[in-house]
Simulated assay, not measured.
Amino acid sequence: MLWSDPENEPPEELREMQETLRRLGLFLALAMVVAMLVLGLG
């Protein structure tokens, strides 16, 4: 995004990797919240 020119799109692999990382980060955040709730309630 920031490292490439507007007309120069990043390769497909990079976009897929970014989306996977974004989903993984979201999943990790959710898992952390659930773990904190379980620990707090337990």
Rank of each mutant, 00 (worst) to 15 (best):
M1K: 09
M1H: 07
M1S: 10
L2E: 08
L2F: 07
L2A: 14
L2V: 07
L2H: 04
W3F: 08
W3A: 05
S4T: 01
S4W: 01
D5S: 10
D5Q: 05
D5M: 06
D5E: 12
P6F: 03
P6M: 06
E7T: 04
E7P: 00
E7F: 04
N8T: 08
N8G: 00
N8W: 02
E9M: 04
E9G: 01
E9A: 10
E9L: 06
P10G: 05
P10R: 11
P11Y: 01
P11E: 08
E12L: 09
E12G: 01
E13L: 07
L14N: 01
L14R: 14
L14Q: 13
L14P: 00
R15M: 14
R15L: 12
R15D: 06
R15Y: 01
M17G: 00
M17F: 04
M17P: 00
M17Q: 10
Q18N: 08
Q18S: 06
Q18P: 00
Q18I: 12
Q18F: 06
Q18G: 01
Q18H: 08
E19N: 07
E19Q: 14
T20F: 08
T20P: 00
T20C: 02
R22P: 00
R22E: 13
R23P: 00
L24Y: 05
L26R: 12
F27T: 15
F27M: 15
L28Y: 01
L28P: 00
A29S: 13
A29M: 12
A29P: 01
A29V: 10
A29N: 04
L30Y: 06
L30P: 00
A31E: 03
A31C: 15
A31W: 06
A31V: 14
M32H: 11
M32D: 06
V33A: 15
V33W: 05
V33M: 12
V34H: 04
A35T: 15
A35P: 02
A35N: 04
M36K: 10
M36F: 15
M36L: 15
L37Q: 01
L37R: 02
V38P: 00
V38T: 09
V38A: 13
L39A: 14
L39P: 00
L39Q: 11
L39R: 12
G40K: 09
L41N: 07
L41W: 13
L41C: 10
G42P: 00
